[in-house]
């Protein structure tokens, strides 16, 4: 464990908690892409199948459970509890255009052709594109509440910190997970234009992000 990975995990946890609390307290999921949240729940489900088979540490197990519970709870809030506020007309990204290529690639490029490893690879590739429905929804509606932008900021920051974690691990322990690194770079690149808007608009005190 290193400081970059720890900060990354904390940033990821903060993002997930921000979103959950925003929906739970405002009793509304307006502006939130339910499709992205379903994809994230799928990412955690396919990645943490080893929850019961391989024990890494208390921290690892606890964080996996927390991520799984919060992601499914968020999907529940969006599609069941506050479904009347779910803006399905704006959440129109064709997720099959993500799932099919990601599934295909996870069969082609993986470390080991076993169910667990292919599902882990699937989750890595899927996570790199899972935010696209949400980013697409924001460009479609042309705006996002500032709380939503804070969620996206910490979510984007988490994988950027993981990139630093991989640089650190490569130089200190020779660790290099090519699939995770390439996907992490792609994932972080998708946030770049959002990061620019976040810094130039939201941090200037605007109540919400309105796209030009």
């Amino acid at each position: 464990m290193n400081v970059f990975r720890l900060l990354g995990d904390v940033s990821h946890l903060v993002a997930i908690i921000i979103l959950f609390l925003k929906i739970f307290r405002s009793k509304s999921c307006a502006g939130i892409s339910g499709k992205s949240q379903v994809l994230f729940a799928l990412v955690f489900t396919t990645r943490y199948l080893d929850l019961f088979t391989s024990f890494i540490s208390i921290y690892n197990t606890v964080m996996k459970v927390v991520f799984l519970v919060l992601s499914y709870a968020t999907v529940y809030l969006i599609y069941l509890r506050f479904r009347s506020s779910y803006d399905s007309e704006s959440d129109t990204f064709r997720v099959e255009f993500l799932l099919v290529p990601v599934a295909g690639l996870s069969f082609l490029e993986n470390y080991d052709f076993t169910p667990i490893e292919i599902l882990w690879t699937f989750s890595i590739y899927l996570e790199s594109v899972a935010i696209l429905p949400q980013l697409f929804m924001i460009t479609k509606t042309g705006e996002a509440e500032s709380i939503t932008t804070h969620y996206l900021f910490f979510l984007g920051l988490y994988r950027a910190l993981y990139l630093a974690n991989w640089v650190w691990r490569y130089h200190t322990e020779g660790f290099f997970d090519q699939i995770a690194v390439v996907s992490g770079v792609v994932q972080t690149i998708f946030y770049c234009d959002f990061f620019y808007l976040y810094v130039t608009k939201v941090l200037k005190g605007n109540s919400k992000l309105t796209l030009p």
Partner: peptide, 10 residues
Amino acid sequence: YALSMPHDEL
């Protein structure tokens, strides 16, 4: 190639 250790990252 098989990645020897289990995936230890979240």
